[in-house]
Amino acid sequence: MLIAQGLACVRGDRLLFKDLGFVLEAGSLLYVLGENGSGKSSLLRMLCGLLTPEQGEILWAGKSIKNHAELYLPNLKYLGHLNGLKDDLTALENLQMGARIAGQDVTATAALAALTAIGIARCANLPVRVLSQGQKRRVALAALWLSRSPLWILDEPFAALDVAATEVLAARISEHLAAGGMTILTSHQDVPIQAKSTVTLSLSA
């Protein structure tokens, strides 16, 4: 269970939000809405521990994520604006090495299955450099088929995806939630994700 209490975020000399809090339980989805520049990405980075909140605290299983990062990080899968892919490595290598660095041993077969699931298997052995924006995004998202982390934090996962890939990804997130996982995401489009409970958080600029 992830709990955020009284979070405040200041970027530069601008207060983006304050007194923000929520409780996210197993199987539920947190949908963060807001205009560009309202602090959605900052909030997500804060929830990962990449950004220190100006005020407030974030608890995972009752323990502060700042002081108990070693308990929190193995449970987290974060995908930000940046894909975290190396241009000179192939899609398959990127996926496998990325999973290993996240502490998970992944065979080439499993990685290929993940790429097949999101419909990008034919690019498995191409360097990521030659792929289009949407294809790169799909390679990065394929990691969700390998992830065993209960908490997914996804920043605009549907950006640059076509209709078919959007549906596949929405289905994968629904499956993750049905299995007792948690997902926090931002999106500008309406995506049908099945969840036991959906919490919507609106940030105003």
Partner: peptide
């Protein structure tokens, strides 16, 4: 390069201590 392509973020979020990586 790691910072520009986002792999630095992923290394920061890895369960292993960052200094070790």
């Amino acid at each position: 390069a790691d910072s520009a392509d986002g792999s630095l973020e992923q290394m920061l979020l890895a369960p292993q201590p960052l200094a070790w990586l």
